[in-house]
């Protein structure tokens, strides 16, 4: 299968604290990659580096035929990468001065020069798909967290990107709202859209992921098919993490 996005040897330090110590990742077309790991393991930073929201100190990114060294990426490269990817943030980051539909349209009209009428049509279609057809004229402040995140997913999907990066999309949500967002993400995955997901939702990872990556302390400790990672982890650190998470998971039910 073809790779959509490849990252090699990403390094990133904040001051003296080295958060990523040479991480590589290969995401194939149509794959759902779930990145697991304790907090502080660098998984969010990795995602942010891919979208150039953090400037990685070293490493290389390949997306399609475009290959860039993080350190030497110019404005044009960054814009190209961003226009081929989309991101869903932990705290939604919907444009607070725009309605739900306008949020979805913004990237289409301004960045991709899609005619407004066509963009509006696409926005309405995507909002309907996430179950918010009736909320297109609502401002973010009038929506619940779960609804905001669903708009954010519609905003990402509408761009028809080669890959969507999900940065802990459910961790800012009240527990009763997590389900609706995960359901939407499942639907997106079923459409065959390539996804990279940083999450703590084990059941989601287990059901949807094609590939699971376990990170700890700025490194990829172990990766493979979900069955292998969840039921036959090879590394001690993976086992410990899974035990802890599973325990919490059982507990909360």
């Amino acid at each position: 299968m073809k790779s959509v996005i490849q990252i090699k040897g990403v390094r990133k330090s904040f001051g003296k604290n080295e958060v990523l110590k040479g991480v590589s990742l290969d995401v194939k077309t149509g794959e759902v990659v779930v990145i697991l790991g304790p907090s502080g393991s660098g998984k969010t930073t990795l995602l942010r580096c891919v979208n150039f929201l953090e400037n990685a100190d070293d490493g290389e990114l390949t997306i399609g035929e475009l290959s860039v060294r993080f350190r030497y990426a110019g404005k044009k490269d960054i814009l190209t990468v961003r226009r081929r990817t989309a991101m869903v943030f932990q705290n939604y980051n919907l444009f607070s001065n725009k309605t739900a539909a306008e949020n979805v349209m913004e990237g289409l009209v301004t960045a991709r020069k899609v005619p407004a009428a066509e963009a509006r049509e696409r926005a309405e279609r995507e909002l309907a798909k996430v179950g918010l057809g009736g909320k297109r004229d609502a401002y973010p402040s009038q929506l619940s967290g779960g609804q905001q995140q669903r708009v954010a997913i519609a905003r990402a999907v509408a761009l028809n990107p080669e890959v969507i990066l999900f940065d802990e999309p459910t961790s800012a949500l009240d527990p009763e709202l997590v389900g609706e967002v995960l359901a939407v993400m499942r639907a997106v995955a079923r459409e065959g859209i390539t996804m990279v997901v940083v999450t703590h939702e084990m059941s989601f990872a287990h059901d949807i992921a094609n590939h699971v990556v376990f990170m700890d302390d700025g490194l990829v400790v172990e990766e493979g098919a979900p069955k292998e990672i969840f039921f036959h982890p090879k590394e001690e650190r993976t086992k410990q993490f899974l035990d802890r998470i599973q325990l919490k998971y059982d507990y909360s039910i």
């Binding site: 814009l79 961003r82 991101m87 980051n93 919907l94 913004e106 301004t110 960045a111 990402a156």
Partner: peptide, 10 residues
Amino acid sequence: EAAWSVGLSG
């Protein structure tokens, strides 16, 4: 960040 992520320039 959200604006950049949907492909808007700075």
